[in-house]
């Protein structure tokens, strides 16, 4: 009898614990088990680029009848791993991911795959194939070449210029610089007199540009690894009364669009962040319904040159 009662107690306790776990799970954002949901995991939305991705994916998910579970990993691979655990526990149908590290993210994506949840990657690649279902990335090299071709044209194929590099640890910094130089270096009359990182940062780019100008007053152009640095460089050039300098950026932000409209920065390269995220959700939906996306795992999305001709059509990382 006693043994039986103990067993009953234990059973009750176990039910309680389970109920608590369920309650806790329910407290997490949008974990309602009622509708099929898709997790959308990106870096922090402080950068409008990632916000555009999350918005694009969420809008498409809703359109296709899914609930969106929006999460941010803040470029922390450990946090990303925990978010994957939450998503798996919430039994999401699929995960849309802009990852927190090409190597570190492989394990998280594998973990979801083992739990039967397919992942669809956007913006950044991981170093393994066959783990995610799709990896859709901007063609950064192609985009950088477009930016470089425009820069060369604006410079008249000659003159001194400076390059602002992105964060060294970020592969996108290297990819874009390589794309720039594969074009620009073929013009012997274009001379790079300064090359320095400003770590994707607007304020850092301002200071770097100031010192570059002091050391090289003959600078005619600046090519930048992203738009925030281009904005910083342009502010420094304006302050120094050097609005004759040609500046070209990368990303297609609304800030640079507005600068182009005012005749400031000359060009940038749009990464179709919004469409890319939507495409990933479409592929997820197709995969869930038919078992295949019908396309290769790794896909490149071409970037688009933005200059005075089409800047007015740019809105939140998409062309209207």
């Amino acid at each position: 009898m006693r043994g039986n009662r103990e067993r009953k107690m234990n059973f009750k306790r176990r039910i309680l614990v389970s109920a608590m776990a369920l309650a806790m799970a329910g407290a997490l954002p949008s974990l309602a088990a009622a509708a099929d949901s898709i997790a959308i995991i990106t870096p922090s939305h402080d950068n409008p680029f990632f916000k555009a991705e999350a918005d694009g994916a969420a809008a498409k998910a809703k359109e296709l009848g899914y609930e969106a579970m929006i999460l941010v990993h803040d470029d922390d691979a450990n946090k990303q791993s925990q978010l994957f655990d939450s998503a798996i526990a919430a039994k999401v149908k699929a995960i849309i991911l802009d990852n927190a590290g090409a190597d570190a993210s492989v394990a998280a994506v594998q973990k979801a795959k083992d739990a039967g949840i397919p992942s669809f990657l956007i913006d950044r690649e991981i170093t393994a194939s066959g783990v995610a279902v799709s990896q859709i990335v901007s063609n950064n090299y192609q985009g950088a070449q477009l930016g470089a071709e425009e820069f060369v044209k604006l410079m008249g194929e000659k003159g001194e210029y400076a390059e602002l590099l992105g964060k060294e640890s970020d592969t996108n910094a290297g990819i874009r610089s390589q794309g720039y130089h594969d074009v620009i270096d073929q013009y012997p009359d274009l001379k790079m007199v300064a090359q320095q990182t400003a770590n994707w940062s607007q304020t850092e780019a301002y200071t770097v540009m100031e010192s570059m100008l002091q050391a090289n007053p003959g600078i005619k152009g600046v090519i930048s690894g992203n738009d925030t640095m281009a904005m910083g460089a342009w502010a420094a050039l304006e302050a120094a009364g050097r609005t004759d300098v040609i500046v070209v950026g990368f990303d297609g932000s609304n800030d640079v669009r507005d600068s182009i409209a005012k005749g400031g920065i000359k060009a940038t390269v749009l990464q179709p962040a919004y469409d890319q995220a939507q495409l990933a959700v479409e592929q997820a939906d197709k995969f869930l319904k038919t078992g295949a996306t019908g396309v290769e795992e790794k896909q490149l999305m071409d970037c688009i040159l933005i200059n005075a001709d089409n800047a007015s059509k740019l809105e939140t990382f998409a062309l209207k």
């Binding site: 170093t127 090299y141 192609q142 592969t171 990819i175 794309g179 594969d182 795992e297 790794k298 490149l300």
Partner: peptide, 15 residues
């Protein structure tokens, strides 16, 4: 096939 390349850079170098 892009999927068989390490990353964009390697694929770009082929182009």
């Amino acid at each position: 096939d892009f999927t068989n390349f390490r990353d964009q850079i390697e694929f770009a170098k082929l182009g």
